[in-house]
Every structure is written in structure tokens, then in C-alpha cells.
């Protein structure tokens, strides 16, 4: 009975470990989705009100407080601390912290970083074009990761259970 319980525990632990990996992947996916939603909003607002970026971020962070991605909230917080620090510096700093926290895929991080490097430096047509391009790239990345994730999730779960069983056999 004890052996059976131990075997169940080991298998369960391996499955939970696999489940954690799946969760982290899902979190990454939802972060990418939040980012492209934010960039879509940013492009729309730039077109309509030509507001400077710090004010725009502040408004976006306040408008939809319930569903605002933490990136926007953090960006707004950092901008508030020093309104007149170059916006690209604040963007990069916020992004690196956010990417570390969420474990954002490298491709998404570099995409956001490249966007932030020149954000606000051009006329509004160029700005919106750049933003839309970034949205498109993030969307494509999200779709491909989503497809991969379905496969990975199954694989991770199966491997989790199998490795659990394997360890149990070894121990027995």
C-alpha cells in the first residue's frame, strides 16, 4: 500500500511539473496577446488624438484597469516617476523587467525592444505603420506558439506521467 502511495506521489509530482511548464507557456501566450492588444490601442489612440506617449500610456493604463496588462501598468508607473526621462529608456527598462518576469519568448522581447528603440521619433503615419507591423508580427508569433503549444502540452503531460512511472519502476 505504501509503495502504491509512493508511486502515485512520484507520478503526480512529475505530472504537476509538466503541468507547470504548460501553465508557463500559456502565461507567455496571454502576455503576447496582451502586448499586441496594447499596441493596437496605442496605434488607434495616436491616430485619433496625437497625444504624447507618456500621457497616452497613462490614459491607457487608467482606462481599462481591470484588464490592463502589467506591462502597461509598469510602463505608466516608471513614466510617472520621471516624466522627462527619454521614453525609449523607460520602455526598454520596463520591457527587460517584464520579459524576465513573464519569461517572454526572445523573439517577442526583441520585437518589442526594436519597436521601443524608435517609438515616438517619427510622424504619426510612420508610427502607426510601425505599431501595426509589430502587432502583426506579435499576432503571427502568438498563432504559431499557440499551435506548438497544443502539441507541447500533450507531450509535456504524457512525458510527465511516463517519467513518473519510469521513476516508480526504477525505485521498485
Amino acid at each position: 500500500m505504501l509503495k502504491f502511495l509512493g508511486a502515485m506521489l512520484v507520478t503526480g509530482a512529475c505530472f504537476a511539473f509538466a503541468q507547470n511548464i504548460v501553465k508557463a507557456k500559456r502565461k507567455q501566450l496571454s502576455a503576447i496577446k496582451e502586448l499586441y492588444t496594447f499596441l493596437t490601442d496605442l496605434a488607434r489612440e495616436i491616430t485619433f488624438c496625437l497625444e504624447p506617449l507618456p500621457q497616452l500610456v497613462k490614459r491607457l493604463a487608467q482606462e481599462e484597469s481591470a484588464i490592463t496588462p502589467s506591462f502597461v501598468r509598469e510602463l505608466n508607473q516608471n513614466t510617472k516617476q520621471d516624466m522627462h526621462r527619454p521614453f525609449r529608456d523607460i520602455w526598454q527598462e520596463t520591457l527587460s523587467h517584464y520579459a524576465q518576469e513573464i519569461n517572454l519568448p526572445k523573439s517577442a522581447t526583441s520585437l518589442m525592444s526594436a519597436l521601443g528603440e524608435h517609438l515616438g521619433e517619427a510622424d504619426f503615419e510612420t508610427e502607426t505603420n510601425r505599431l501595426q507591423e509589430a502587432v502583426e508580427n506579435l499576432y503571427n508569433l502568438h498563432s504559431s506558439l499557440e499551435k506548438d503549444n497544443v502539441k507541447t502540452e500533450k507531450l509535456a503531460r504524457s512525458l510527465g506521467i511516463l517519467s513518473g512511472v519510469f521513476i516508480v519502476i526504477l525505485l521498485l
Binding site: 495616436i46 497625444e51 504624447p52 500621457q55 522627462h84 527619454p86 521614453f87 515616438g120 504619426f124
Partner: peptide, 16 residues
């Protein structure tokens, strides 16, 4: 350049 960008709150499009 930095000074001009800072005066524009990092958003040239808004001050064009």
C-alpha cells in the same frame, strides 16, 4: 537631438 526629443516628451508625432 536628445534635448529636442525630450522637449517633445519623446513623441515627435505629437508636436509635428
Amino acid at each position: 537631438n536628445d534635448l529636442a526629443t525630450t522637449f517633445c516628451s519623446g513623441s515627435i508625432y505629437a508636436y509635428l
